[in-house]
Design a protein around this nucleic acid. Structure first.
Lengths: 143, 143
DNA sequence: CAAACAGGTCAGAGTGTCTGACCATCTCGT
DNA sequence: ACGAGATGGTCAGACACTCTGACCTGTTTG
């Protein structure tokens, strides 16, 4: 049973562990996100993003994106301002509270990566990251 | 931008690529599954499983499991028979058609793994799998 | 053998997603 | 310089998956 796991599952297990830790520790710090909200929130550019760009990047419809951005706005993570360059558009921007949640999640990721490195050793951790980065060339749909 | 991706994302990209390929090629071969259906279907034991066991393993409620098993049954991938050992229970079993879909998905996984190995080289592919297997010790919630 | 437990179903609600239709604004070719 | 088409966004309605709570039927156990 142990060794014949397919490589997809082998990748999924640590990915999922990372994700779970981030959501748990974020929630413990008072930052509640659903996975769907996070998927959109993650993609907001530093100086704000348009709804349609977020939709495209997240791979969901504009309508679903609007639904989720409404929630993020209600939760205080983002606000919306008119786009100065385009009268049709509004920019979704990360608020102060939003930035604090980003920082918190960055910290959790760093903590988990440190745990992994402690388990694997620095050398194999670096190898893992190099191999995955290489694999990205043929598996990353956004190049 | 390229190298500072966190390890979670780095794991997710190839995992997601694998998953997408499996669903696409399965669909092309006439086997349609939603991700939710697949999550339950995957966990059916060779000699059949109880609904409650599937629910526990998939981490969803019995009701949701029943909902998905109904669909799998309608699609012809599983059937249900009374459990000879427990009058309350029924066993969910994989049908002939279900087995064919399992075989098809196994083939897609093998194909994708071969592509990855061609890109990375056999040596690094093996390294990747070894490191991930090792990482499983601290990230696999089902031990 | 009664009480507690386990397997399963029914009913109702919430969330995230989609498609289709629509309006407002911008861009570009003539 | 203007009209056609593209783009940004919203509204309305539907569907898929999930949950909680209540319940029934059988099994196990003190």
């Amino acid at each position: 049973m142990p060794e014949d796991l397919n490589t997809g599952v082998l990748l999924y297990l640590p990915y999922r562990a990372m994700e779970t830790r981030v959501f748990e520790e974020l929630a413990a710090a008072g930052f509640d996100f659903t996975p769907s909200q996070a998927r959109v929130f993650q993609r907001i550019a530093p100086d704000g993003s348009r709804l349609s760009d977020l939709a495209r990047q997240a791979g969901i419809t504009k309508q679903s994106t609007a639904f989720l951005v409404d929630q993020l706005e209600r939760l205080g993570y983002v606000d919306r301002v008119p786009d100065p360059d385009d009268g049709r558009a509004r920019l979704v921007r990360i608020t102060e509270r939003g930035h604090r949640s980003v920082e918190a999640s960055r910290a959790v990721v760093a903590r988990v990566e440190a745990e992994w490195e402690a388990h694997l050793g620095a050398r194999r951790m670096a190898q893992l990251r190099r191999i995955l980065t290489d694999l990205r060339e043929i598996t990353d749909p956004w190049r």
